[in-house]
Computed example of a mutant assay.
Amino acid sequence: MKIIHGLAQTLTELHYYLESLNYTLKGINICNSIESLYLYAELHLLTGKNLVHLQQPEKGLHYIKQSKNIFSLQKNEEFIRIAEHELESILQCLCTSMDKKR
């Protein structure tokens, strides 16, 4: 899982969002199949970020909200703040794009 997550992070940083998305979704599926929470929330957060970059903010919001919920259950305050920051950024972008359409 650590290799998949690290590769996905690197691909996102290099702006290869679709390739990264493929790995994050693969990682989530592996976590589900082996019933592991190791890096599960982090993979959801990164999936959400990739979807936002791929112009799918609603789907991205869904994954980021899930990651925040998982971080909350794990009492991981640092990552809760990161997820909240991502949510705020996306919501601001969505509001701005809706205002432009009017």
Rank of each mutant, 00 (worst) to 15 (best):
E88L: 12
R102I: 09
Q9H: 14
Y23I: 06
Y17L: 07
A41M: 01
T96N: 15
T47C: 10
G48S: 07
L18A: 11
V52N: 01
G60I: 04
C95G: 03
R81I: 03
Q74V: 01
E42Q: 12
K75A: 07
E86F: 05
E88Q: 12
H15M: 06
G48M: 05
N76M: 07
S20C: 09
Y38R: 13
R81H: 06
S67T: 03
Y23C: 05
L25K: 07
L25I: 10
L37R: 14
S89T: 15
T96A: 13
Y38V: 10
I80E: 02
L87T: 00
L54T: 08
Q92T: 10
Y23M: 10
L18D: 13
H62E: 15
F79K: 12
Q74R: 11
E88W: 00
L91N: 15
L11F: 06
E42K: 07
G60E: 01
G27F: 00
H44Y: 14
C95I: 06
N32C: 08
K2A: 08
T12Y: 02
Q56T: 00
E42D: 14
Y23G: 01
H85T: 15
G6H: 09
E86N: 05
R81E: 14
K68W: 04
K49D: 00
I28W: 02
K49Q: 03
L61C: 07
E84L: 09
Y40H: 07
N50G: 12
L18F: 06
K26D: 15
K75H: 12
I90F: 03
Q56R: 15
I64G: 00
L18G: 11
K100Q: 09
A83C: 05
K68N: 06
C93L: 13
S20R: 01
K59F: 06
S97T: 14
Y16W: 09
G27I: 03
L21W: 01
Q55H: 12
H15G: 04
N22A: 13
S97N: 07
N22T: 13
